[in-house]
Design a protein around this nucleic acid. Structure first.
Length: 703
DNA sequence: CAGCCTCGAGTTCT
DNA sequence: CTCGAGGCTG
């Protein structure tokens, strides 16, 4: 045995030496002597041996060099001035609104704009000190980017040093140039051809190719990718003869420093000028050598720009006018029917895979029967597909003129495709439902998944594959059964190691400590979501009081009307449900109960409001979160706001007090502008939170 | 009773 | 994110 081991050890040393040799040849001498595939084979063999004999791994093994995620390989750098995103407009109406706001704020009749195409590439920032390029970084989240200086230096159109025409006196002490790195369409095609020949993965579009190329750890690879750079603005600057009057002069200046500046830029006046330019560029789109996704408008006078300032994370003086979402046509291969947690049958279009808006789309929801009828969709049709809101695929329309003669209409099944129970569509409802209830495996699985979901009992690692397996093999039937699972039973499943089985058992155990609101939500009572579950928990304070409440008592809770009350009473009226709840309690799920506030719900609510509102700008106020915040998730922000007694709503209305906007915020941001709701960014929110926390503790200390 | 505001539910892809 | 529908308010 030990002799065999020493033999293996020797072989591993040979592999290590060979790999290192090829590594050096490849990276330093640039003359690889064996094909990449053979190299990979050696590497994999070593990896396998190391996996089997971990005690034989040496610290100098080439396998130890890799495995560091490339993301971490680039140092993070803070931008001197944040790289903000632009507000988007999709319609002419939105562009008109933008121009109106600009004119009103400035008190002028006609605004002049610097306009240019919007490149579909990566925003970067280049820093020059005394005329020398010292660093370059990606946009990142706008505040912190990745330092990719070495890679940027390989881009030939980026000047490494600045030569000022006036003889050198005018070189700025510091200059930050902003622009876009991109790959030309032709270079993208060529690169993909090469990648295919080398049997390496191809890129989806020029933007991804540019991003991938810029983030190579080996600058030599970047150098071979033929990336381009175009400047479009200036961040921070000190000294030099940098123009102070207009944006277009700034671009002329950058051009004089030999930065590539796009040829299609121009200045126009008023909405008419903006729209005409947009139209013109749309027409040119196909012929341009690079991808663009719209046009950018900036108020030309720098003085005006300053006056307009910023809202949240976007300048008020600029707008990105985007082209409409790209559409594509494909074939509708069939319509499947999915069964949801509440038994709702949802028709889903199976499409011949088609590339739209940056992703390959194969499925698209058709929502319900009425939707299918409205769009007159038949199986076998050619359909137009687009990604709505840039994410969710949607069937836009049917090309009726090319409908094949054998196209079949969709018929909502009379029986559930999963359990065979009858399906019903109640009069006045749009949804068709399976009547199988928890007898239906689809509904049972969804119920368990809902129970375990993050916002309910938060059992990490219990995904749909595992639930499928557990339910199909009759290992569990109800959420309560989860808590009776043994380690042995779980580890015995295929593809489930001892370790991951242990992790899940652990997570299940952890979930036993919870709060009443989560528990109520986790039961999956129809029409009772997170918000209602919280209201119920607050009102009743204990589970027994909730379970015993009749329809009338339930309706005393705010936001609970006859329909919701009936759902709740109906749920607890079923013996099966009461049994599951009993089992869950018996198995050790626990939460704190209190007396609740069964009378005068609204009075208690307003007392709460008064207590906070006296000193706080948060308690009782309604917040809406949108976009990606720089340092925390929306979820974290919500918790912080709620901890201070604030309320977080899902949509913006007149009642909204604050909209907290991050980057890439969407329609909610626009709505906030429209309604004149106060906009905050993350930093402002944090300040607000801290201020009211200070108030809170001082008032508490006083009393 | 109408219209507005919220909440619930369902969904896709990387 | 979007749609539908429940609940509240004027």
């Amino acid at each position: 045995m030990s002799e065999r081991l020493s033999e293996i050890s020797r072989h591993m040393q040979e592999l290590r030496d060979a790999i290192e040799l090829h590594n050096i040849r490849y990276y330093e001498l640039d003359t690889p002597t064996i094909p990449d595939a053979d190299f990979d084979k050696l590497f994999r063999e070593l990896e396998e041996l190391e996996q089997r004999h971990p005690q034989l791994i040496t610290p100098d093994s080439p396998t130890q060099r890799v495995g560091i995620p490339p993301l971490k390989a680039f140092p993070r750098v803070a931008h001197r001035t944040p790289m903000l995103s632009l507000s988007n407009a999709f319609t002419e109406g939105e562009v008109e609104a933008f121009d109106r706001r600009v004119r009103q704020s400035l008190g002028i009749d006609h605004a002049e704009y610097a306009v240019e195409p919007k490149f579909d590439g990566l925003a970067i920032s280049l820093c020059y000190e005394n005329g020398t390029l010292v660093s370059g970084a990606t946009r990142g989240d706008g505040y912190i980017g990745e330092d990719v200086t070495l890679n940027l230096k390989t881009i030939r159109s980026i000047p490494l040093g600045l030569k000022v025409a006036d003889g050198g006196a005018g070189v700025p002490a510091f200059l930050e140039v902003r622009g876009e790195v991109l790959m030309l369409k032709a270079d993208f095609e060529r690169l993909n051809r090469q990648q295919r020949e080398k049997n390496e993965k191809t890129f989806i579009n020029p933007r991804n190719a540019a991003a991938g190329s810029l983030r190579q750890l080996d600058p030599r690879i970047t150098a071979n990718r033929n990336l381009r750079f175009f400047a479009y603005g200036i961040g921070a600057c000190e000294g030099g003869n940098v123009p102070q009057d207009t944006h277009s002069h700034l671009l002329d200046y950058l051009s004089s420093l030999r930065f590539p500046v796009m040829r299609e830029r121009r200045t126009v006046t008023g909405v008419a000028g903006l729209l005409e330019y947009h139209h013109e560029i749309s027409g040119l789109r196909e012929q341009l050598p690079y991808d663009i996704d719209g046009t950018v408008y900036k108020v030309n006078q720098l003085e005006y720009q300053e006056k307009l300032g910023f809202v949240s994370r976007a300048p008020r003086f600029a707008l990105a006018h985007k082209f409409p979402a790209q559409e594509a046509t494909t074939e509708l291969l069939g319509i499947d029917v999915q069964v949801g947690r509440t038994g709702a049958l949802t028709p889903v279009a199976r499409l011949k895979p088609v590339f739209v808006g940056g992703a390959t789309v194969t499925n698209a929801t058709l929502h319900n029967e009425d939707e299918i009828r409205r769009k007159d969709v038949m199986i076998g049709d050619r359909v137009t597909v687009r990604r709505a809101g840039d994410v969710i695929p949607e069937v836009v329309a049917v090309q009726k003129e090319s409908r094949p003669s054998d196209a079949k209409p969709f018929v909502m099944p009379r029986h559930c495709p999963v359990c065979g129970s009858r399906t019903v569509r109640l009069p006045g409802e749009t949804l068709t439902r399976c009547t199988g209830g928890l007898f239906c495996p689809a509904q049972r699985k969804q119920a368990i998944l809902h129970f375990a979901s993050r916002r309910a009992m938060n059992i990490h690692g219990l995904g749909d594959k595992l639930v499928d397996h557990l339910v199909d093999n009759a290992i569990i039937r109800t959420p309560a059964d989860l808590y009776k699972l043994g380690l042995a039973a779980l580890a015995a499943l295929d593809r489930m190691g001892e370790k991951s089985a242990g992790n899940i058992i652990n997570e299940i155990e952890k979930s036993k400590d919870t709060i009443l609101a989560r528990f109520i939500y986790s039961l999956g009572i129809r029409n009772v979501g997170e918000a209602t579950a919280r209201d119920l928990a607050r009102h009743f304070g204990g589970l027994d009081r909730l379970m015993e409440a009749d329809v009338e008592t339930l309706q005393q809770v705010s936001d609970v009307g006859p329909v919701v009350a009936q759902s709740i009473a109906g749920f607890f009226g079923e013996r099966h449900n009461r049994e599951v709840v009993e089992q869950l309690r018996a198995v050790g799920i626990r939460w704190k109960e209190d007396a609740g506030i069964q009378t005068a719900d609204h009075a208690a609510g307003s007392a709460h409001l008064e207590a906070g509102a006296a000193s706080s700008k948060i308690a009782g106020r309604i917040f809406v979160l949108t976009g990606t915040l720089p340092t925390m998730s929306r979820e974290e922000a919500r918790e912080k706001i709620e901890a201070m007694g604030g309320k977080v709503a899902g949509s913006v209305s007149k009642k909204t007090d604050y909209v907290v906007a991050g980057s890439d915020s969407g329609s909610k941001y626009d709505k906030a502008l429209e309604l004149g709701v106060a906009l905050l960014d993350e930093a402002e929110l944090m300040r607000l939170l801290q201020a009211s926390q200070a108030d809170d503790s001082s008032t508490q200390a006083d009393s």
